[in-house]
C-alpha cells in the first residue's frame, strides 16, 4: 500500500538572472515494508528530492502527500511535528550528539517524538532496538569511542526507535568501507521489513542497490528508470 506520494515535484534555484531547474516534475510513491533506492550520478537531483520529501526544504511546485496531507502546503511547525514523530533520518555521517551515550541518543529521539512510553517502557524499547542493531553491548559508550560502522548503527537505531512511518537515508554508507556498507544496508532492509516502514535511500553506490526492493534512477532532475 502506498503511504507516501511525490506528485509532479519541481525545484528551481535562481542565481541572479539564471534559473536552474534541479527537479523537473518528479513522481514516485513509497510502500510500507519496502526499501526504495534512489540512485543517479552526482547532481542528478536525488538528494534534493529526498530533502523535499522529508520536509527539510520546500518544493517550487508539486505535492508531497503523506497520510492524505500535502506537506508542501503545511506550516513549518506542522512539518516539524511530522518529522519528529513520523519520519526517521539517517545521514551520510552519523551526526550523533557528542555528549550523549548510545542509549541517551535513543532516549533523546523518544523525547523529541513526544513518545507516550513511561520510563520502564522506554528502557525496554531502547534495549530491544540496540539488540536489533547489535549495539546493546555499547549502550553506555559515547560516540567518540565508536567506530564509523558502529556510529551508523546507532544512527539507524535513533532513526527508528520512535517507530516512524518513513525512513529517509541520504547516502548512509558513503563514509563506510565496503563490508560495513553492506552490513548497514542489510540492517536497513531487515528493519524496514520487520517494522513495516517505508524507506527511501539515496545512494550512488551500485553495490548497495541489491538491498533495495525498488530502484529509481535519476538523471538531470528526472526519473529515467524504475526497476
Amino acid at each position: 500500500m502506498s503511504i507516501f506520494t511525490i506528485d509532479e515535484v519541481r525545484k528551481t534555484f535562481t542565481n541572479g538572472e539564471v534559473k536552474e531547474e534541479i527537479l523537473k516534475g518528479v513522481n514516485l510513491s513509497l510502500q510500507e515494508g519496502e526499501v526504495t533506492a534512489l540512485t543517479g550520478a552526482s547532481g542528478s537531483g536525488k538528494s534534493t528530492l529526498l530533502t523535499i520529501a522529508a520536509g527539510l526544504q520546500s518544493a517550487s511546485d508539486g505535492q508531497v502527500i503523506f497520510e492524505g496531507e500535502n506537506l508542501t502546503a503545511m506550516k513549518p511547525e506542522h512539518v516539524r511535528k511530522i518529522r519528529a514523530g513520523k519520519f526517521g533520518f539517517v545521514f551520510q555521517f552519523a551526526h550523533l550528539v557528542t555528549f550523549l551515550t548510545v542509549e541517551e541518543q535513543l532516549l533523546l529521539m523518544l523525547d523529541v517524538s513526544g513518545s507516550k512510553l513511561n520510563k520502564q517502557e522506554r528502557k525496554r524499547e531502547i534495549d530491544k532496538m540496540l539488540k536489533l542493531v547489535e549495539m546493546d553491548h555499547r549502550k553506555t559508550a559515547y560516540p567518540t569511542s565508536l567506530s564509523g560502522g558502529e556510529k551508523q548503527r546507532v544512527a539507524i537505531a535513533r532513526a527508528i526507535i520512535h517507530q516512524p512511518k518513513i525512513l529517509f537515508a541520504d547516502e548512509p554508507t558513503a563514509s563506510l568501507d565496503s563490508k560495513r556498507s553492506k552490513d548497514v544496508m542489510a540492517l536497513i532492509r531487515d528493519l524496514t521489513r520487520k517494522l513495516n516502514i517505508a524507506a527511501l535511500v539515496v545512494t550512488h553506490d551500485e553495490e548497495m542497490l541489491s538491498f533495495a526492493d525498488k530502484i529509481i534512477k535519476m538523471s538531470d532532475g528526472q526519473i529515467v528508470q524504475k526497476i
Partner: peptide, 13 residues
Amino acid sequence: MGLYGILKAIGVK
C-alpha cells in the same frame, strides 16, 4: 551549528 542543524532536522524545537 552542525549539531543544532541535525537536532532541528530530527524535529527538535
